[in-house]
């Protein structure tokens, strides 16, 4: 997308400069042909390809790289001014974690984003995707960390004066450690 944009930008600007600076440039092409070529023939295939590729990619991201729903681990993320609380409905005996989200590496996780007050937005830049936590709604987002590690997360919808500080951390653990970490039985470091 970046290189395609760069090519289109160079083309349009090049044509502009050539038309202004080079005498008689482009006069051999009729005005109608200029418009048809540049306004329809050039952008239509590009846009069509891009749009439909994006649809397919969107479907892929929505499903979170899994085909069966039961492979997905559900985690509830509740935003409030100005912290995130994470709970694990499918892991019995797990306490609520504040501003710290544990996920198993190599498994797709479904975040159920909810809010107790105003609109927040759950975003872990390196894991991709973003979902708003809208009061009165439960929105779902599937993410997946392939490797264990730490990832920074941040609220990306303006939610008042504490917005800038509403950060959290995601820790992806090996699958075998995950349950213990969540229930508090395992000290990672």
């Amino acid at each position: 997308m970046l290189w395609g944009s760069f090519a289109l930008f160079t083309l349009v600007l090049g044509l502009f400069l050539a038309a202004v600076l080079v005498p008689r440039f482009g006069r051999g092409v009729s005005q109608t042909r200029w418009i048809i070529l540049g306004g329809l023939v050039l952008p239509l295939p590009v846009l069509t390809g891009l749009t439909f590729y994006a649809f397919a990619e969107g479907e892929f991201l929505l499903k979170g790289a899994v085909s069966e729903a039961d492979e997905v681990l559900e985690i509830r993320a509740t935003g409030r001014m100005w912290q995130w609380q994470f709970s694990y409905p499918s892991v019995s005996g797990s306490p609520v974690h504040t501003d710290l989200l544990h996920i198993p590496a190599g498994r797709t996780v479904e975040i159920i984003a909810e809010s107790e007050d105003v609109i927040h937005s759950f975003w872990v830049p390196r894991l991709g995707g973003k979902i708003d936590a809208v009061p009165g709604h439960s929105n779902r987002l599937r993410i997946r960390a392939d490797q264990p590690g730490r990832y920074g997360g941040i609220c990306s919808e303006y939610c008042g004066t504490g917005h800038a500080g509403m950060q959290f951390e995601v820790q992806a653990h090996r699958q075998e450690d995950f349950r213990e970490v969540v229930t508090g039985g395992f000290r990672h470091d």
Binding site: V12, L15, F16, A19, V20, P23, F25, G26, R27, V29, Q31, W34, I35, L37, G38, G39, L40, L42, P43, L44, L47, L50, T51, A54, F55
Partner: peptide
């Protein structure tokens, strides 16, 4: 999303109409 992509077409038509005007003028 499709409508957002499509709106680029009328824009492109205007931009190339301006380029055509420039190319055919002095």
């Amino acid at each position: 999303s499709a409508a957002s992509a499509l709106v680029a077409i009328p824009t492109a038509i205007q931009i190339f109409a301006w380029l055509a005007t420039l190319a055919h003028g002095r």
